[in-house]
Amino acid sequence: MPLWWPLLLSSLLFAIGVYGVLVRRNAVLVLMGVELMLNAVNLNLVAFDAYFRDVLHGGQTFALFVIVIAAAEIGLGLAIVLLVFRTHGQIDVDTMRELADREEPAVAER
């Protein structure tokens, strides 16, 4: 199998992940987009590893690390999203605009 097949697939997956982050307003779906980006890279890593026949299996090892860290990241992300849901009542990221440079200076005091 030529190397560029998995590379192309992975870049497509990555692009879908990016697209998800950009267009989804639901915070959980945004997190899924991020997850997709990370896993697309895993595919890349494993493909390179196989291509190089890397004895240390750096790519595959890295892929494992990425999986673990992605899990931690998602756990933490969901915790934050949950917190936001409890206080804001919804998780639409577009409604969270208290922090911004405004036309007229108006900082919410709460």
Binding site: V21, L22, R25, D94, M96, E98, A100, D101, R102, E103
Partner: peptide, 17 residues
């Protein structure tokens, strides 16, 4: 330039992209 700092997290992500 302030207008770019509009508070939308998705638009920040777009600027990163």
């Amino acid at each position: 330039m302030r207008r770019w700092q509009n508070g939308f997290v998705r638009s920040y992500a777009l600027s990163v992209l």
